[in-house]
Structures are given as C-alpha cells and as structure tokens.
Design a binder for these strands. Structure first.
Lengths: 224, 224
DNA sequence: ACCTGAACACCGTTCAAGT
DNA sequence: ACCTGAACACCGTTCAAGT
C-alpha cells in the first residue's frame, strides 16, 4: 500500500493497467537511499547521488517520490516500521518509561535519523504506536485526555531535543576541535562562577545516563 | 572584542596597523544578515544574498567570517546578547522556572533561531547566563554538581526540543495542507484507538501552555 | 590587508521530448 | 506510464589576481 494515496506507484494492490512496466519501485529507492547513507552519510544523500546508485536519471526518481522531503519521510517511516516494539509492563508509569526509552534508543542508533527528524514528523503507521502507548498509559494513570496529550507532547519534545542536541554534539566532536571547547577553556569566573568551576569537567559528566534520569523526573512530575 | 581570537577584525581593540582600511565590519555583516532574515527568512540567508545586501562580492565576507556556520554562530550570539535577563526570585525552584521560561520565550520570538539552534551551540558570553543560573540554583536546591549539570542538560533538551518541534510545525502549517492532517484523518481505530478517538481534536489542545506545564513537571521531578 | 572575478563542484527541480 | 537530456536557478567555497 502506498503511504501517499496521491502518488502513482507500482507497489499498489492492482498492477497498473496501462503503460510500460516500472523498472524500479518505491521500495527500491528507499533501499538505495539506505545504502547511500550507510556508505557516505546523510549529507551525501542527494537526488543525483541516489540516481547514480540506481543507475538512472535524477528525474526518474520524481516519478516515484514527490520531492526530497517526501523521500526522507519515506525513509524515516520505513525505519520506524522495522522497530520491534516490546511487551509492556502493566504499571502505567513503567509503561511510559519503557515506551519512551524504546523510542529513544531506536532513534539514536543511526545519526542520520536526527537530521531527518529535525525537519519532519514521525508519522509512519508503526511510529504511531509511540503516542498511542504514552497517551493510553497516561489516561490509565488518571490524567484527563488533554493532560495526557500534553504529557505525550512534553515527553516527545524532551526525547527529540535530547536526540538532536546530543546528535549534533557527536558530529561536531568528530569534525575536530570545537569552538565550544575554546569557550569553556576561557570562562570568566566573575561572570559565570559555576561554569568556570566546572570547566573542562563538563564533558566528563557522562551524557549516557542523562536521558533516563531526565525522563524519570519528567514522568514523575507529569503524573503527580 | 572579536568573539573569535583567530579571526582578523576591524572591531578589535587596536586598529590594524597596516593595510587598507576595512569597508565593513563584522557588526555590519551581522546587521545585514538580520535585515535579510527579517525581509525574506533564514532560508534566503545565503552568502551571495548577504553580499548583495552589502553591495560587495560574496568572497569579501570570507575576510570577516570563517564560513557560513561561523556567521550563524555570530548571529545567534548577537541575538542572545540582546536578551534582557530579569531579576530572579530567591527560591531556587522558582529561579529555575523563570530562567528557563525567559530563555524559551526569547528564543521563540523569531522562528529563524530554531533553525540555527538545530545545528549550533548557544555559547555567546551572554547566553552562558542560562546554564550558570540553572546550575547554580540546582546546587542551591541541594543537588550535587554532576546532578545539577544533568538537570541543566535535561531542561535544555526539553526546551530546545519544544522550540524545534513546534517551530517546524508552525512552518509546515504555513506551507499548506499537511501530510500530518491526512494521517490523522485516516487513523485505524483498531490499531491506535486513543489517537483515533482524539482525531482532529489533537490540534485543539493548545500548544501554548504545554511548555510551562512540562517544564514545571520536569523541574519538580529533577529536584525531588 | 582588503577586496574582486572567474571558476569549481555541486544542489533540487521544471520542462519538453522520447519510447 | 515511465524515463531521458538539457537546462534553470541556485548553492558554498577556492584560487589567483588586483589595489
């Protein structure tokens, strides 16, 4: 089933009745895109590079995909559809924690996801499992429907923010010496005493456990 | 004082002793960039457009700015330096809430900030007021230094995530009918009963108060 | 030291034409 | 219906030269 009803596709239920048979499908394009990203990173995923990968003209792609944004959406949904959703505990609070953690961990595996996430929604059929689970658990825990929606939004904002911010930080670190490091080395102890005191130790406080701790705090507050 | 010790600049304390006088300063460039953004949006802020605004060659800019990323950093720091930091209440919890809200509100005024934020740090001299205040208040409230840093991180991730996600949503809405709306109109009540029940009412739950409510919850949990 | 001109190595996308 | 070829309207940035 095409995810966009408006686009012609050779993947639809009935094969097209007229015209010449397609040489590639939307699935082929998505697979090729994944290959490009795996090989060279998201920043190299261009319509032209993708066309080269598929040995076709850039314009051939536009027959299967509305534009590049549409391609990225497809890519993200395809990835989300592959996530294995775990069995959930009964306690609603635990359910929220587990669901959010699964979502976070699944999205943090590949750095390219963060880039796509930053300008796109996560709305694949399968990704909807996430808001559904959180909202349902929040209602079970006693929140009203609007409060449950607000709680989900807060959790999503926290999760997306963590992914985006730490994702960029990792990339920056990989690119070489940072402006950030320079700033932290020359802090004014008069103006920002706490930061100056922390100084270079800042990076030592491991970022790993931060997501879990913050999530717990947020959920505790939301359900209070 | 130039914000980057390595770059030549006519803004530095001593005027350059040799060579021809500069026709434009870093400040001029930043001001022109603000004008371009105000007129046409961030997506139109290119080195070439900026050069046109300043009636110079694109390459002239590279004499004052390392590259485009550097320009965006300058822009953001310049904006942050103009934020009026308010007097803060004594109670550390309230102090955190006020500081975070000021930061959030200041950054949410102009939509372009979110785009720059998504791939850059916020490290201007003045922007450091934010982590300094939060961490100091958290320590005053009884947290250890590592816990205070973690608390600041969580608050920043939440704030940045809220700004980025809702910022994109606003832009998408402005661009026309959304894929999102289509998805929400055709939800499968079997698979995602809660979402289907909420349906189009989703957008009604106002996003305005969400930041404040989530922040309160997060801080409550962090200080518990 | 400061700036220009021309060029390089790219982008996403439209449009008209071929099969 | 599916795909190609050529072109349009852009990018950021390097490099050699002018003043």
């Amino acid at each position: 089933m095409g995810k966009m009803g408006t686009m012609p596709t050779s993947q639809s239920g009935q094969p097209a009745r007229t015209g010449r048979p397609a040489r590639m499908s939307r699935a082929d394009i998505v697979a090729a895109a994944h290959r490009v990203i795996a090989a060279d990173g998201v920043e190299k995923l261009t319509m032209r590079r993708l066309a080269a990968e598929l040995a076709c003209t850039p314009m051939a792609l536009y027959h299967h995909v509305r534009d590049k944004q549409d391609l990225l959406r497809l890519l993200l949904d395809d990835y989300a559809d592959a996530i294995a959703w775990p069995a959930l505990p009964d306690d609603p609070r635990q359910r929220i924690l587990v669901a959010a953690t699964v979502m976070h961990d699944a999205l943090s595996v590949h750095p390219w996801i963060v880039d796509v996430l930053a300008d796109g929604d996560l709305l694949g059929r399968s990704a909807l499992w996430f808001p559904e689970t959180i909202i349902d658990a929040a209602i079970t825990a006693g929140l009203s429907v609007p409060d449950a929606v607000a709680a989900y939004r807060a959790i999503w904002h926290y999760t997306a923010g963590e992914l985006i911010v730490t994702g960029r930080a990792v990339r920056r670190a990989a690119e070489g010496p940072t402006y950030r490091a320079e700033v932290f080395a020359n802090l004014d102890a008069e103006q920002v005493p706490r930061l100056a005191e922390i100084g270079s130790r800042w990076t030592e406080f491991d970022t790993e456990t931060t997501y879990a701790a913050g999530l717990k705090a947020l959920v505790t507050g939301l359900l209070a």
